[in-house]
């Protein structure tokens, strides 16, 4: 697929999926978000990086409804939204993958993919007896995993029998399966080894290929540079810059993160 080149692409052809303007969040004397802006474009992987305490997780919580900002606005597809909780963000098509493996390990892969969104059999069995459509869900799960080219043992094997990378793959695939607008991944590879990280990064690429934009929060610079189309750099509760991995080096990004370098040009 053609790589997205945000610095040269005209803004008109790049639909903005999720946007935040001037978000502020204060806890007493501590300012977590100090007027931060955010922009996710269609079909891109946007990495969000920043030092500890730079406001990364506060920003992500605001975008997923886990935190309500004091002021500022969030626009989804250009329409203002006010999330009162994570479930509301989910309903509007924003799925989040958490760092700690948020799966029910004793349940099988298919059950985990559809957890909380189980499908029922049609007709009397489903409507009256409330019977699950296990076969249908398994088939759909297998189809999606094949489409994402994510290799797993039998779809009916328990998640606890999988490797860490495969488990996180299940959580990532769940987001991909149900996100209508975008998927947010909070340090999805933090607990994984090198090879397993590779599997999950491949999966995230496959998700982009299906047209779903992804926000990736990561501490791991090589991962960010390997996969991101643009990099949103947080510093002191604000967006210090948005750069492209094609025009900037890891050293540049770290310099902006730590304030050692001034940012050239508008963010």
């Amino acid at each position: 697929m053609a790589p997205v080149e945000p610095t040269t692409q005209a803004p008109a052809s790049t639909g903005v999926i999720l946007e935040a303007r001037n978000l502020v969040k204060r806890y007493g004397h501590v300012t977590a978000l100090d007027g931060v802006d955010f922009e996710l474009r269609s079909g891109e992987i946007l990495a969000v990086v920043g030092d500890n305490g730079a406001g990364k997780s506060s920003l992500i919580k605001a975008l997923t409804g886990a935190l309500i900002p004091d002021s500022g606005e969030i626009l989804l597809d250009g329409h203002p939204v006010h999330f009162k909780g994570p479930l509301e963000a989910r309903k509007l098509g924003i799925e989040t993958v958490y760092q700690d493996l948020a799966v029910a390990a004793a349940l099988d892969i298919s059950s985990n993919l559809f957890l909380g969104r189980e499908r029922r059999r049609p007709g009397f069995l489903g409507n009256v007896l409330r019977m699950l459509d296990k076969k249908g869900m398994r088939a759909e799960a297998e189809r999606s995993m094949a489409e994402l080219k994510f290799r797993l043992p039998s779809i009916s094997s328990a998640v606890e029998s999988l490797s860490g990378g495969q488990r996180q793959g299940v959580a990532v695939a769940r987001a991909a399966l149900f996100a209508k607008k975008l998927a947010i991944m909070d340090e999805p590879t933090a607990a994984l080894g090198v090879r397993e990280t590779g599997q999950v990064l491949d999966l995230i690429r496959a998700i982009r290929q299906r047209g779903l934009p992804v926000v990736l929060i990561s501490h791991n610079m090589p991962n960010v540079f390997e996969i991101a189309d643009r990099i949103h750099i947080m510093r002191l509760g604000r967006r210090a810059a948005v750069v492209s991995p094609k025009t900037h080096t890891m050293a540049d990004v770290v310099a902006i993160m730590t304030g050692a370098a001034k940012v050239e040009g508008p963010a």
Binding site: A102, L115, G116
Partner: peptide
């Protein structure tokens, strides 16, 4: 089963 297995994951998926 999900709640008994991992209540936090169950809550996160909206159960």
């Amino acid at each position: 089963y999900a709640v008994g297995n991992n209540p936090e994951a169950a809550r996160l998926v909206g159960i």
